[in-house]
Write a protein that binds this DNA or RNA. Structure first.
Lengths: 248, 248
DNA sequence: TAAATTCGGTATGAACTCAGACCTTTATCC
DNA sequence: GGATAAAGGTCTGAGTTCATACCGAATTTA
C-alpha cells in the first residue's frame, strides 16, 4: 500500500457508531411491537377502542394490509378483540400484567446493556421534556389532562394499574413538551422501562416517595418553572435508576 | 350507543402522538440518506474509503443488494467512486459543500417545523451527551481524539471545512458518552442542523465565539466536570439556535 | 510466478409490502 | 323501513427487499 498518500482513516472506533441499522424489523413486526407497547403502557387502557384500521395505517406509515396482519397477531395473542360494522373496531381486552404474572424474560447480555443505556438516555430526555413542558403556554385542557394523569397515579391501587398510570403520566409530560422527537424518545424509553419492571419485580415500598416526586414534577410544570421541573424529574429518574441498577 | 358503559376514550389529543410512523422511507432511500449524511458530516472525509459493501450492509441492517443500489445512487450523484479488486472499495470524492454552492432548498412548512423541533431536541440531547461524556473515565486515546477534533475545528479555514469539523467534534463528544441512543440522537440532530445551515447561509462573524465555546466544552469534558460541560453545551446550543431561529 | 484473499459485480427466487378497489356487516338518521 | 355512513374483510398485481449463491478483478503472499 502506498502509505502516506492516503488520508488518515477517520476515527473509526468512535464515529462508526453513526451507522446504526436503518430500521429494526419488518414493518409487520414493528407495528405489532408499537401497538403492544402502546397498550401495555396504557395509552389505550383496557376497554378502549383503537383508532380505525385506515387511520392507524396512516399514522404508523404502513399499508392497511400490513397493519391488519399486525392486529391479527395482537388478536391471537389476546391483546384485543375486533367487532365489525359501524361503531365496531378493535378494543383492548388485555388486563395490565403484573410482574409476577409473567414468565421471567431471559436477560441476555445484550438486553442488559440496552437496559442500562435506556436508563442513561432517560436521565437525559425525560428531564429535558419536563423542562420544555414547563416553558410552554398550556391550555386549560392540557393542564387538566396533566392533573388527571397525576390523580390516576395516586388513585391506582393494584401494582399493574399503578405502572400503567405512571407511564401515562410520563408520556403526558412528554406530550406537553410538544416536541415530536422528544415524545418519541420518551415513548421508547418508557417501553424499555416497562420491560425492565416486568422482568425485575421491584418492591413497592417506595411508591409514596415516587408519588411525591410526581407531584413535584407536575406542580413545577403547571407553574411554568422549567428549572425546578427538570430538577424534579432528574431526581425521580435517579431514584428509579438506582433501584433498577441495583437489581441488574 | 350505550353511552356511559364504555370507558372514557384516552386523552387522544396528547397521547396519540405516540403513534409515529414505523419507518420513514424505503430501505434504499434510508441508506442513501444515511450515507450521504455521514459523508456530509465528515464522518468519512474526502479521500477516505468507506467500509466494504458486506460490512456496510450488516451495519445498516440491510441486504447487500439494497446497499449496492444506494451506493450506485451516491456514485451517480458524484459523492463517491468505486474501485474493484482487493484493496478496492468506495472512496469519497465529494468536496464539502458550502452554503452558497448549493441551490436553495425549498423550505416547506413541514420542514420548517421539523427544523424548529430539531433545535429543541438538540438543546436536550447534546448537553446531556456532554455531561455524560464528562462523567466517563476516558482512555488516553479518547482524550486525544477529542483534542484532535477540537484542533481540527480551530484550524479549519474554509467555511465548508469548518462546518464538517464542527459536526465531527459534536459527534465525538456524543460518542464519548458511550450511549448508543444518545449517539443516534445527536447524529440525527446534526444531520438536521447541517441541512439548515446549507439552506440558510449564516454569517461567519461568530466563529471565534463558537470556537471559544467549543474549547470550554472540551475542557470541561476532559476535566470530568459534568455540570460545567452541560452548561457550556447549553450555551453553545442556545447561541446557534437563536441565530437560526432568527433566520427562519 | 502461483495461490489465496478481499474486494466489487451479477443473478435468482422467495418473502414482504404497498396501493387501491370492492364487499360485508352494523349502527344511525330520516 | 330504507338510505347512509363507518367500520372491518378480501382480493390482486406491482414493486421492494432479502438471502444466498457464484463470477471477475486486483492485491498480497508464499
Amino acid at each position: 500500500m502506498t502509505a502516506g498518500s492516503l488520508p488518515e482513516p477517520p476515527v473509526t472506533d468512535l464515529l462508526d457508531s453513526v451507522l446504526h441499522p436503518v430500521r429494526g424489523h419488518h414493518a409487520f413486526e414493528a407495528c405489532v411491537e408499537r401497538l403492544a407497547t402502546a397498550i401495555r403502557l396504557g395509552v389505550y387502557p383496557l376497554g378502549t377502542t383503537l383508532p380505525s384500521e385506515r387511520d392507524l395505517a396512516i399514522r404508523l406509515g404502513v399499508s392497511r394490509a400490513t397493519l391488519r396482519e399486525a392486529i391479527a397477531a395482537l388478536r391471537e395473542a389476546g391483546f384485543v378483540e375486533t367487532r365489525r360494522g359501524r361503531g365496531g373496531g378493535t378494543v383492548v381486552t388485555q388486563k395490565p400484567k403484573t410482574p409476577a404474572g409473567r414468565a421471567a424474560v431471559r436477560v441476555t447480555a445484550a438486553k442488559r446493556r440496552a437496559w442500562l443505556d435506556a436508563l442513561d438516555f432517560r436521565r437525559v430526555v425525560e428531564p429535558g421534556a419536563a423542562a420544555l413542558a414547563a416553558e410552554r403556554e398550556l391550555t386549560d385542557g392540557q393542564r387538566e389532562q396533566l392533573e388527571q394523569a397525576l390523580a390516576d397515579v395516586n388513585e391506582a391501587r393494584k401494582p399493574a394499574e399503578h405502572r400503567q398510570a405512571d407511564s401515562r403520566l410520563h408520556l403526558t409530560v412528554a406530550a406537553l413538551s410538544a416536541s415530536p422527537r422528544l415524545i418519541e424518545a420518551v415513548t421508547s424509553v418508557q417501553a424499555s422501562l416497562h420491560e425492565m419492571l416486568l422482568a425485575i419485580p421491584v418492591l413497592d415500598r417506595n411508591i409514596a416517595h415516587s408519588d411525591r416526586q410526581h407531584a413535584r414534577i407536575v406542580r413545577s410544570v403547571l407553574n411554568g418553572q422549567p428549572t425546578r421541573a427538570r430538577r424534579a424529574m432528574e431526581d425521580h429518574c435517579d431514584d428509579t435508576a438506582a433501584l433498577l441498577r441495583g437489581l441488574l
